[in-house]
Design a protein around this nucleic acid. Structure first.
Lengths: 225, 225
DNA sequence: GATTGTTTAAAACATCCGTTTTTATGGAGA
DNA sequence: TCTCCATAAAAACGGATGTTTTAAACAATC
């Protein structure tokens, strides 16, 4: 043991604490004391707190990126040069997202981290993810573009992010929502079950009619630009 | 002057800085120096940083809650005992949300604050908001229930939270998304514009067909519960 | 005009932070 | 066995944070 068991313990602890409280609210002392590791170990092994944060993401995103590329390769081969239907693309992404963290039972953590990557300031993180994994995302969105040729580019951009929000919000807050749902409607809710419910909603949202060109409400006051 | 001009200056500055960087990343010294006010003034007038945060929210949510109650009163009067259509309910909520901060040209700030309330840990904030403004939300969801009688309770519960996720994720990550959107499609994106795009998506999502009873994907592996 | 209560100003306080430095440890290679 | 070196542990550093204290300024009341 102990080769660099320390590194793993730090990563395991850090991802949980980050997911629970965010980056700024989680101190290195929180992490190292809970991981029962010396404080200096983080700077020794990772260099800085920023680098730790990036390493936490890399441990999920590296395998995800690899698997997703493979899955898209398989799809493109299967469909030759024909367009891949939107439902198939979404299904493939969902499957890949579910596969990656399954080994460590930490889908919730993974989702929560993804949400933080967007909502927390942390400019360095966005830059890092964009630079390191931007190409997988670009490849996916390009396929989505071909699958929805009638959608204006900007509209597709926003709808994809709307749906990203739906998924991340739901899965990252899963425990809380599950509690409420089971108390109010006493039914068991599995992740599989949620994905089943999500599918028609996401498809309908992506295929929603375009918004009115000039909109504006008559009875609303003027509003900041 | 200066009755308690200081209090107002603190609130005005704090809400902007909170919206830009989040709560933990904004220090009292940031606020007081930018507001050109003494450091101790925050603790003197508000008691603590937590109380300052709550006060910032109260200044938006108090008028929102009041207006939204009035708007729902008006709707219930107009529709007598007939059910209020879903579109009208959503439109009313959107309109009220847009109205409140209009006076101070700070719609973006309000939106970002709402996003932060969910995405940042800050347990005290969620508790405060739930306790202080929970009844308006309950009233709204009850009306939504009557507006969508064909939707099973559980399905409506999940779809409402799906849409909550869409809105909150979009608004709380607004700056990040806006950066990407403007770089890729160089178009200006206003909050008004976003709401216009959101409407058809939310309506379509709520009216999506029910998921298949027995679903299951053949090629997906088993997954953590 | 002295006195009172309220607000601002300046300084100090205790604590926590990320990081660096210093010292100890323990196992692999000569 | 001794040396070396990667790791671990302990301690300290410099700086920033929220809060409190102390003193001054101000306005209103008697």
């Amino acid at each position: 043991m102990a080769q660099s068991d320390t590194v793993t313990r730090i990563l395991d602890t850090a991802e949980v604490l980050f997911a629970e409280r965010g980056f700024a609210e989680t101190s290195l002392r929180n992490i190292t004391s809970k991981a029962r590791v010396n404080l200096a170990a983080v700077n020794y092994h990772f260099g800085s707190k920023k680098a730790l944060i990036q390493a936490v993401f890399a441990r999920y995103l590296d395998p995800f990126s690899e698997r997703f590329h493979s899955a898209l390769d398989a799809l493109e081969a299967r469909y030759a040069s024909r367009d891949i239907p939107l439902e198939v693309l979404l299904e493939t992404m969902a499957t890949t997202v579910l596969e990656v963290p399954a080994e460590r039972n930490s889908l919730k953590v993974f989702m929560r981290l993804l949400g933080l990557a967007y909502s927390q300031a942390q400019g360095h993180l966005r830059r890092y993810i964009q630079q390191e994994y931007g190409d997988v995302f670009s490849r996916f969105t390009e396929l989505v573009r071909r699958a929805t040729p009638d959608l204006p580019d900007a509209e597709r951009f926003w709808r994809l992010h709307f749906m990203l929000g739906t998924v991340i919000f739901t899965l990252s807050g899963l425990d809380a929502l599950r509690d409420i749902a089971e108390k109010d409607y006493h039914q068991q809710v599995s992740v599989r079950d949620l994905i089943r419910r999500l599918r028609p909603v996401v498809v309908a949202a992506m295929n929603a009619p375009l918004p009115d060109e000039r909109d504006t409400e008559p009875h609303a006051d003027t509003v900041a630009h």
